[in-house]
Nucleic acid binder design. Structure first.
Lengths: 181, 181
DNA sequence: CGCAGATGATTAACATGTTAATGGTCTGCC
DNA sequence: GGCAGACCATTAACATGTTAATCATCTGCG
């Protein structure tokens, strides 16, 4: 490598990129779960949805998207498929006809019951490797980052999940200069 | 919420999922950069590639993929476009005709020069908000996770990047039970 | 030398991420 | 009551993630 390490360069080296490190960490962790999920025909996202729904009776799409970090547009494609497979049910809210309420169907509960144990086992293995204390440190640090960067102003009103779907603030990237495509 | 907090439930609540927290953190951080990148017509990935290439004279695809955390298959689609736009050049390695060597074209260097300053400014703002010390703690913790979970055996030989592309270990998810699609 | 197996890039096929546009529904306000 | 603007879900269009298959090249070994 042609570049020294310290705080010298005009731009910190690529390796010291926070998004990159977060991505690497996530990929390495997910690598432990993916084979298991795929063995059950589930993508990461589908499992997040099943898992989120399993914790409650039902959820509207906005909440589901917020909890799973899945964009509404993506949900609109994923949910119909899962419904066709009999894993979940969708209905329109009576009070607000715009909203779609989603709930896990028996078959979805069963799938969760089938997948969860091994999933927990994998998580337990990861906990063993990293160590409970250090893992707690990881959560603390991540919560910290999330809390600090969530909206310049304090958000987090009652019940609101902080994670925020994809880019609820990034929006409006400007039609902009497309480098002449 | 119908579930208590402690270590009680049959499965830890969704919020305490390491991959989820890593994803949330990453999304929140990226949200700060995306508008800027999009204003220059760049996707996250394209910027990672430009940035990685700017640090060196040239790289073969494998290395580039490893450093940017982009799957070779994705690179095969992204690179031709960037080449068409005159941002980079590709050539076949003389020593090994299988390998493709990529390097930044003048126009790519210029793009980097245009984008980097504001990008660094955004990073500086994030550093201010989180605080230098806490940010160092974040890196330390993430490096720790990455190192610990990188292959059960210690990797990280000379020069090797640890991050590992997408799933270099997750592979072979079994053709498997597709839930009868 | 020559071949079998390993390796690197590409491509295809499908799933999701991302943005913008569309259409139905609701809400506040006149 | 009725309308304008906000809100939610869906869809389209494009970019990327992900896996498997394919093709070319290379390497080790007989």
């Amino acid at each position: 490598m042609t570049r020294a390490r310290g705080r010298a360069g005009p731009m910190r080296p690529f390796e010291r990129s926070l998004p990159m490190q977060l991505m690497r960490a996530r990929e390495i962790v997910m690598a432990r779960f993916r084979p298991h999920l795929h063995a059950h025909g589930l993508t990461d996202q589908q499992w997040r949805i099943v898992r989120a729904l399993n914790e409650v009776a039902e959820l509207d799409m906005m909440e589901l998207g917020a909890r799973c970090c899945i964009h509404p547009a993506s949900l609109s494609r994923i949910l119909p498929r899962l419904e066709d497979e009999g894993l979940l049910r969708r209905r329109t809210s009576r009070e607000d006809q715009r909203r779609v309420i989603v709930s896990l169907a028996p078959r979805g509960r069963q799938l969760f019951a089938d997948v969860a144990p091994e999933s927990e086992a994998i998580y337990a293995a990861i906990t063993r490797e990293i160590g409970t204390e250090r893992l707690e440190a990881v959560y603390a640090v991540l919560d910290d980052v999330i809390r600090t960067l969530s909206g310049t102003s304090p958000q987090r009103e009652a019940g609101k999940i902080t994670g925020v779907p994809k880019n609820f603030a990034a929006k409006r990237a400007m039609p902009s200069a497309k480098r002449g495509r």
